[in-house]
Structure formats: C-alpha cells, structure tokens
Design a protein around this nucleic acid. Structure first.
Lengths: 137, 137
DNA sequence: ATGTTTACTTTCATGGCGAAAGGAAAATAA
DNA sequence: TTATTTTCCTTTCGCCATGAAAGTAAACAT
C-alpha cells in the first residue's frame, strides 16, 4: 500500500511541504516525476488530506494556549459542536473518554478573552482549565 | 504590522498552502506578486514558521489518539523532555498549570502500543489517560 | 517643493509542475 | 515456457508559476 519511500516522502513534506519534487527525489533516489506520482497517489488515498502552514500563534497575538476539559450538563451536543466549530479560538477539539466529555485546545490573546470564552462554555456545562506554560513539542 | 489582508492570506494558506499566489491575489484584490511579497514578509517576521501537511493519521496506521496527563515524580525534567522529543508517538506536548505537569497528545496504532508507552511514562511519574472518541475540530 | 519610503503592478527569465510517452521488470495468465 | 498485463520508473514537453527587478504612484518627512 505505502512503503518506506512513501513514509520518507511524507516525513520530508511534513518538514517542508514546499520542497520541490526534484529535491525530494534526490533524498529518496527517484526522479521528481516519480515522487510527484507517489504524492498524488497518497492524496488520492486520503493519507495526505491537504497542505497547510505552521504559524507562530504568539506572533499573531494569540499569546495564551489553554486546554479546557468540558463536563456537559446538557444533552444538546449538536449545539455545542456547532459552537465549537464556529469558535476560532478553538484550534482543536476532541470528544474524550474518562473524566470530562470534550477536551478543547484554545488559543487566546489573554486572560480577558479566555474568561469570556469560559463564560460561553458555561451554557453547555462546567469546565476545568489547564494553561500551557510552555510547548515542548 | 500585519493587516486584514495579511490575515486573509494566512487564512487561505492555512486552508491550502499550495494555492498559487495568483489565486490568493484574486481573493484579496492584489496581484500575485504583491501577495508573494506579503507572504515573504510574514515568513521573515516569523509569523509563518513553515509549510506542512495535514495527514490522516488513521490511514497511516495510527488508529488511536490519547491525551496523557503526566504527574512527575522525579525532578529530572530534562530527561523527560528528551524522552518526549524523541518519541514519535508524541505529536504534541505542553507543560501545563493546574492539575498535572505535562499534557501529551499521543497517536498510537492500538492498545498495545499505548500500554507500552504508558509503561515508559511510569519511569518519570504517574499519568491519567483520556482517549479521543472522536475529533470535532 | 523636494526627497524618501512604501507597496503596488508590470515585466522577464528560469525552471517547476502536470501530463503523457516510452521502457523495463515483475507479476499473472495461458 | 511463453505471452500478456501490470506496475512504476525515467524522459520529454508545454504551460505557467515563482522569484527578482524595474517602474509607478501615493503617502510621508523635511
């Protein structure tokens, strides 16, 4: 299905998706065209879902990252899903097992914006917040 | 520093960083070259840190995502940092405030790999695991 | 009024990308 | 064993994207 060369190509593209096919080809000992064929195939298989940026959120004014565990009090999960989807500050959201119903990763400009966000969460349930003190990885 | 046009460009590139400068220009009413100039400037400012892929981890055999909160029992944090950095299964790691010391996002192929990983964590401290049941965002 | 700075548009050269053809090896079928 | 098909590479080609630079106009400073 997908071999070691494909994994190597993925690894290189994750590092820099604007690498030229020729440059990748040099690393995996193929021509650029052969690399292009493999990349297209992984796109078609859905392994590569898209191409995006790595942004420095801090330099965009999002100085604070918080992890918010939500304990739902309502059964209207679809409304919560919609709220989460529309909320730009929520960069990632997972439904989780164990303690809590959802885990949200939130980036905000400061305490004020976080506070406002948490107030909005109260409509759906209670929450626990952990602030990111630093990002290791 | 960075205006609404820049934010629009970032938004478009986050959606698809292989968009052509001309295509982005059409959206923000500039020529492709003007867009290219702005993108380069945001790279130089460090706002754009790089270009990468959106991968389907599930199709890469990483069928399970878990959030692991680590409660350190040792003060040798650097060793833990090193372990985390080298561990491919750890896709994201933050030092956190409140309950727990670190929050790790981990992708694994199944319970066995998760189990092994958690055994390794025990060298540094205790843990709490929440499995992702589904990803909203 | 003049000079400088900023940021755009236009122009140009290079080469990247996408598609297709050709070829070789491996796999499959007869 | 031979013939055919399939797979995946390399090579080729045409189009146009990218990077760089020149020209221009508006805003700003003196």
């Amino acid at each position: 299905m997908i071999d070691q060369t494909d994994f190597k190509i993925l690894s290189l593209l994750c590092g820099n998706s604007r690498l030229q096919w020729r440059e990748i080809g040099e690393q995996v000992h193929l021509t650029g065209q052969a690399v292009a064929n493999r990349i297209r195939r992984m796109e078609e298989l859905g392994i590569i879902e898209g191409y995006t940026l790595r942004l420095n959120e801090r330099k965009l004014g999002k100085a604070m990252t918080a992890f918010v565990t939500v304990f739902m009090k309502t059964v209207d999960h679809p409304a919560f899903h919609q709220f989460i989807t529309e909320k730009e500050a929520v960069v990632e959201a997972n439904r989780i097992s164990g303690e809590g119903c959802y885990l949200l990763k939130v980036t905000v400009s400061g305490q004020d914006e976080l506070s406002l966000f948490l107030d909005e969460i109260l409509k759906y349930g209670n929450y626990r917040v952990n602030l990111s003190i630093g990002k290791l990885k």
